[in-house]
Amino acid sequence: MSGLRCVDVCAGAGGLALGLEQAGFEPVLLLDNKPVACDTLRSNRPAWQVLETDLLDFVPSRHQEIYDTDLLSAGLPRVKSDATVARADTGDELRLLEATVYLVHAVQPRALVIENVPGLVGAPEFEPVRDLIREELHHLGYRFRWFLLNAADFGVPQDRRHGLLVALKEQYFEAFRPPGPTVREHLSVGRALGRSMAMGGWRDADRWAAQACGVAPTLVGGSDRRGGADLGPTGTKRAWARMGVDGSTVADGVPGPEFAWAPEAGRHAMVRITTDQAALLQGFPPDWRFAGRKTARYRQIGHASPPPVAKALGLAIGAALATPAPPAAGYTSTL
Score class of each variant (00 low, 15 high):
Arg5Asn: 11
Tyr102Met: 04
Arg293His: 09
Arg45Asp: 02
Ser305Phe: 10
Tyr298Trp: 03
Leu55Pro: 07
Leu96Ala: 12
Gly194Cys: 07
Leu56Ala: 15
Glu264Ser: 11
Asp32Leu: 06
Thr90Met: 11
Asp54Ala: 12
Leu71Thr: 04
Gly314Asp: 05
Leu4Asn: 06
Arg78Thr: 10
Leu76Thr: 10
Val85Trp: 14
Trp208Gln: 06
Ala310Glu: 05
Arg161Cys: 03
Gly266Lys: 03
Glu264Pro: 00
Arg242Pro: 00
Asp276Cys: 01
Ala192Met: 13
Arg191Thr: 10
Ala74Ser: 14
Thr84His: 15
Ala239Thr: 11
Val50Glu: 09
Ala152His: 02
Val9Pro: 04
Asn116Asp: 08
Phe259Cys: 11
Pro157Asp: 06
Lys237Thr: 00
Asp224Val: 08
Val79Glu: 09
Pro327Gln: 10
Pro181Ser: 09
Asp82Leu: 06
Asp131Thr: 11
Leu280Met: 13
Arg78Asn: 07
Ile66Ser: 02
Arg289Trp: 00
Gln49Phe: 10
Ala216Ile: 11
Leu31Gly: 01
Pro109Ala: 09
Gly214His: 12
Pro257Met: 09
Ala192Ile: 02
Val85Ala: 14
Pro35Ala: 14
Asp92Ser: 08
Gly221Phe: 07
Leu315Ala: 10
Asp159Leu: 11
Glu65Arg: 13
Val104Trp: 09
Gln282Ser: 09
Ala37His: 12
Trp146Lys: 03
Ala304Asp: 03
Leu71Met: 04
Arg299Val: 01
Gly253Ile: 00
Gly14Arg: 02
Val85Ile: 07
Arg207His: 07
Ala86Thr: 10
Pro181Gly: 08
Thr100Tyr: 05
Ala312His: 08
Ala229Met: 13
Pro128Met: 06
Lys311Tyr: 01
Leu165Glu: 01
Lys294Phe: 01
Ala151Ser: 15
Asp206Leu: 07
Arg203Met: 03
Leu193Pro: 02
Cys6Leu: 13
Gly19Leu: 05
Gly314Asn: 07
His162Phe: 15
Phe290Tyr: 02
Phe58Pro: 07
Ala291Arg: 09
Cys6Gly: 04
Arg134Leu: 07
Thr236Tyr: 04
Thr236Asp: 05
Arg203Ile: 03
Pro60Phe: 12
Lys169Arg: 15
Leu18Tyr: 04
Gln64Met: 03
Trp240Phe: 13
Ser223Glu: 14
Ser305Arg: 01
Glu135Ile: 06
Tyr67Asp: 05
Glu135Thr: 12
Thr84Asn: 15
